[in-house]
Nucleic acid binder design. Structure first.
Lengths: 197, 197
DNA sequence: AGAATTTGGAACCAATCAGTACAATACACG
DNA sequence: CGTGTATTGTACTGATTGGTTCCAAATTCT
């Protein structure tokens, strides 16, 4: 009956994610997005309503994709111990920077920026952050060293890991020497070697 | 001979710092700055050349003022042990958030944002970051537990503290529950209790 | 083939951006 | 008391912003 859409919605969101990831929400202009997504103003507004709505969809997609990948690593059954999974996640972050990926984390950049003054965006970012923290907490539950930890202790540890994660990703974006990240990861490994107090 | 300037330059920079701190470099519009600084376009451009130059001056001022305060705390001779100074700095960050200051750190926000694509800004931000890390390193040298640490170990520890610092300040800005920060600080304290390996 | 529908692209909008030009202003010195 | 000089406020620039609207071209179903 009607003409079908010539682009794949998910693919368009994926491309929009790349643009927002590099530039951030406020710095990404509409032409930037149209270029990156390969479609025109009319199509974008028809399909995604407006820029902010598109960004919310992007946050959702990022959470499924990128945050999901991190959580998968933290829950990877092939790595028997949760502690090792956590270190493997941090190592992967360093490896990404070493490979030239200095985009950092979309959520972290949004969290540090003025975009948080929008309540809808703030809520979506918070949700993603909680997801990462929960991933750490689950990994700690699968760690021989931390399994027996009381709940409050484990939660506190998960929070420091989230803090560390955010710090690392901001550092990644700031183009500071890679050594800082690597040494930082090296040192945080010892935090996980601690005996419960 | 000439008409004297009606405003104090340092005071104007101070006020500009407040605007940039809240909004970030790219999000702070010229009217925002003019409002906050209490002067007009002509005066601003005459005195500070342009927005970016003003921001570089602001970064300099921020480094002297805010970073300086953090370094002072890390070097506070009234607190005998370096470890305690570090914890006192982190506690102060939590206290600031508890008191309603959700601005985070100007340098950290810039590091997480698109402003880093400007080399001059990136260099100034990096310099500030290095300053904080050096502050941590100095405090570690004054810590009974860490005094004897080999240089590389101490540097690695300073880097993880910098990472943690950045993470905390981004979290502060993200308006996430205060408990996350507090538990995070609580946990990092144990990192400093570790015996050298 | 023809009707129905949605697409894509350009034209357009008002608002805002950083930055500039310039005339009015106010002070210090002779 | 004027003259020279630097600062001031403002009007203006040209570019760009996010957001709309319109319509011809395109495509699928009847």
């Amino acid at each position: 009956m009607a003409r079908p859409r010539e682009f794949d919605t998910q693919d368009a969101i994926k491309k929009a994610t790349a643009v927002f990831w590099e530039k951030g929400f406020l710095e990404a202009s509409l032409p930037d997005l149209l270029d990156g997504m390969g479609l025109t103003r009319g199509s974008l507004y028809k399909a995604f309503k407006d820029k902010k709505n598109l960004f919310l969809l992007v946050l959702e997609h990022y959470e499924e994709e990128a945050v999901g990948a991190a959580k998968a690593r933290l829950a990877d059954a092939q790595v028997p111990d949760g502690r090792a999974r956590i270190l493997s996640l941090f190592a992967a972050l360093c490896a990404a920077v070493a490979a030239g990926d200095t985009r950092g984390c979309l959520l972290c950049s949004a969290a540090a920026g003025f975009e948080m003054s929008d309540p809808e965006i703030a809520e979506a970012v918070e949700k993603g952050m909680r997801g990462i923290r929960d991933g750490f907490e689950a990994a700690l539950r699968a760690s021989a060293t931390h399994r027996a930890l009381p709940d409050t202790e484990r939660k506190a540890l998960a929070n420091v890991l989230l803090t560390h994660y955010i710090g690392l990703r901001v550092l990644a974006r700031s183009r500071m020497p890679l050594g800082i990240l690597e040494q930082s990861v090296e040192s945080v490994a010892r935090l996980l070697d601690m005996e419960p107090v």
